[in-house]
Nucleic acid binder design. Structure first.
Length: 285
DNA sequence: AGGTGGACCCGAACGC
DNA sequence: TGCGTTCGGGTCCACC
């Protein structure tokens, strides 16, 4: 599932082939992609425009054009973008759009479940659209411990639900939410408002760590899960039910938290707050 | 207002 | 083997 690390990987891969290029032809095969707009009309709006920058905000890919035009692409669950230097790839039942660049190469959009969206805006409209939906970039300066605390304080909702809210932090999805909570040693069902200050600080650091790890794996095949050279999952918690926790050996447990499959270590992610994450020998206490 | 649960999709995984 | 059923995931929206 494309979360921040996957979208960032796509951005890095496509920026060199897209920036400075003109869109010669845009073919939108699935009306859902630009709904409620008319596909032909949306395509015509993009044709002839030159890409000035390819940016990312949360899970959105932001295609900025030289004219006052911005295309916000959201891959949702199964969307993917691929460059085809030799022109359109072989027939694919899940191909939803093809953009032909002025160097004759194609950028292909495929999306099995058709949840993804392409939304053209002027620059101000795009900024407003993002501003009401997204909180700070997790890897930026604005994602401070006090900001995170301000988003958790006084709330009874499970902390996992709170960090999945894109206004709390932009770009976290189900996988990296579980990973971040594992790194921080925090139970996903803990009421958000009950986290102590040191815990929300640890959670902020853990969100960054989980996402940076994900960006580091960026080269691995998207959608196949993240596996190392030996074919072993790099993930610490997500999807690892029954396997021993890497920290303490306790089998990873599964629960449903606000409707999402959730994996965590029932021992080192305790339900109740602990004094410290640090594991000191008894003689030091 | 905050929290919850369903809708949107469709392939994969599962159950009989 | 083959069929029907369930699941999941991000976001929006209706409802409590």
């Amino acid at each position: 599932m494309p979360e921040l690390p996957e979208v960032e990987t796509v951005r890095r891969r496509l920026a060199p082939v897209l920036v400075g290029r003109r869109l010669d032809r845009v073919a939108i095969g699935d009306p859902r992609l630009v709904r409620p707009r008319d596909p032909a009309e949306a395509a015509a709006e993009l044709e002839g425009e030159t890409v000035a920058a390819l940016e990312r905000r949360g899970k959105y890919l932001v295609v900025r054009f030289e004219r006052d035009l911005v295309l916000l692409i959201h891959l949702r669950m199964t969307g993917s973008l691929q460059h085809a230097p030799g022109g359109r790839l072989e027939d694919d039942p899940h191909l939803r759009a093809v953009v032909t660049l002025d160097d004759r190469s194609d950028v292909i959009y495929r999306d099995v479940r058709r949840f993804g969206t392409w939304e053209p805006f002027d620059a101000a409209g795009a900024a407003a659209h993002l501003a009401v939906r997204l909180g700070p970039e997790p890897l930026g300066r604005a994602f401070t411990p006090s900001f995170l605390s301000s988003r958790l304080d006084g709330r009874s909702t499970p902390v996992k639900a709170a960090i999945l809210d894109q206004r709390t932090v932009a770009g976290l999805g189900n996988i990296y939410a579980d990973e971040a909570l594992w790194h921080a040693g925090i139970h996903p069902l803990r009421p958000a408002g009950e986290l102590r200050r040191d815990e929300s600080k640890a959670l902020r650091d853990a969100v960054r760590e989980a996402l940076l790890r994900g960006i580091g794996w960026g080269g691995t095949d998207l959608g196949d899960g993240v596996i190392d050279a030996a074919g072993v999952s790099e993930l610490k918690a997500y999807g690892r039910g029954g396997e021993p926790c890497e920290r303490c050996g306790t089998p990873i447990a599964r629960a449903v938290v606000s409707g999402r499959g959730t994996w965590f270590c029932p021992r080192c992610q305790g339900r109740t707050a602990r004094r410290s994450r640090s594991v000191l020998p008894r003689s030091h206490l």
